[in-house]
């Protein structure tokens, strides 16, 4: 159970931290889904070529980081709308990965890794969990204890004031986008390496769930953990429910969304009742 919940939640949490950094910088990266794909594909390519986990993770982090920062820059320079360019990038990246896949490996289907000297799923999960912990603690430290974190939040809170003080909110936002790409890349790399294969559409909506986690977590860093945990438990429960009840299996597919929605509702209801009490 712990395995299942972590294996499902960690990729979402990583991407969500990335998305959260862009969100507080004042400009949200909605291309997480596509960036996870790119990370997953890069990890496959490097792993297949070098058999090195270190290189695979590094490359998978760098490539999406570059793409993310690149499209953010393009959008800023040409005054585009980051939301639409994000949608476009989400369309573009899976298409490009598939084209590259056909060019390099003559297939846009499942690409398997040689499994002879691969780590077991459990070991890999332990590694990615440690990485995620480090990422989380670092992000927490930077955001709340350092000047860089202050800058990041300031860029999001008040752009004008930031500019007047002589800072460059664009540079801050670009950094946030690069970081979000990096984290999505790690998330994608984990997906590929734990499956021992790259599968088309491997991100399967995890990028979107990561965005949802930001709001579900009340736009707080610690909230992301709860949100990712909530998604994972809901998913786990839904997967289990398929076997437990004598009902058509496909009835349970939407349950993670529904449970999360209800959770959000219940939480808000309690909060509003509490507030009602406080008021005279």
């Amino acid at each position: 159970m712990t395995y299942s919940i972590l294996a499902y939640g960690i990729p979402i949490l990583l991407a969500a931290i990335g998305g959260y950094l862009t969100d507080i910088s004042g400009k949200m990266n909605i291309a997480l889904e596509g960036l996870i794909m790119v990370g997953a594909f890069t990890a496959y390519g490097v792993m297949a070529a070098t058999s090195s986990y270190l290189l695979a993770f590094t490359a998978a982090a760098l490539v999406p980081a570059l793409i993310s920062a690149g499209y953010e820059t393009l959008t800023t320079v040409y005054h585009g709308n980051i939301f639409v360019t994000g949608l476009a990038v989400n369309l573009l990246l899976p298409g490009l990965t598939a084209l590259l896949s056909v060019r390099i490996y003559a297939s846009s289907g499942v690409l398997s890794l040689q499994t002879d000297h691969m780590l077991s799923s459990v070991t890999l999960l332990q590694i990615i969990t440690v990485i995620t912990l480090i990422v989380f603690v670092t992000a927490y430290g930077i955001l709340h204890q350092t000047k860089a974190g202050l800058l990041l939040r300031a860029a999001g809170l008040n752009r004008r004031a930031f500019e007047i003080r002589g800072g460059s909110p664009d540079a801050v936002q670009r950094t946030a986008f690069a970081l979000s790409g990096l984290l999505c890349g790690l998330s994608g790399a984990y997906l590929t390496l734990s499956l021992h294969a790259f599968v088309p559409n491997i991100s399967s909506g995890k990028g979107w769930l990561a965005l949802a986690a930001i709001y579900l977590g009340d736009r707080r860093l610690s909230g992301l953990v709860y949100a990712a945990l909530f998604f994972s438990v809901a998913e786990y429960a839904a997967n289990r429910a398929q076997g437990l009840f004598d009902m058509p299996a496909s009835l349970f597919l939407g349950f993670p969304f529904l449970i999360t929605f209800l959770g959000l509702f219940v939480k808000a209801m309690f909060r509003s009742r509490r507030n009602d009490h406080k008021k005279p």
């Binding site: 393009l74 959008t75 040409y78 005054h79 585009g80 709308n81 980051i82 939301f83 639409v84 360019t85 949608l87 476009a88 990038v89 989400n90 369309l91 573009l92 990246l93 899976p94 298409g95 490009l96 598939a98 084209l99 056909v102 846009s108």
Partner: peptide, 27 residues
């Protein structure tokens, strides 16, 4: 099919880069 998504993406990207530029109010 993959190629078509790439073309969609490129064109959507370039339409927005200029067209949406006229919008003042950001999201």
């Amino acid at each position: 099919f993959d190629m078509s998504n790439v073309i969609r993406g490129i064109i959507l990207l370039s339409i927005t880069l200029r067209l949406a530029g006229s919008r003042r109010r950001s999201m």
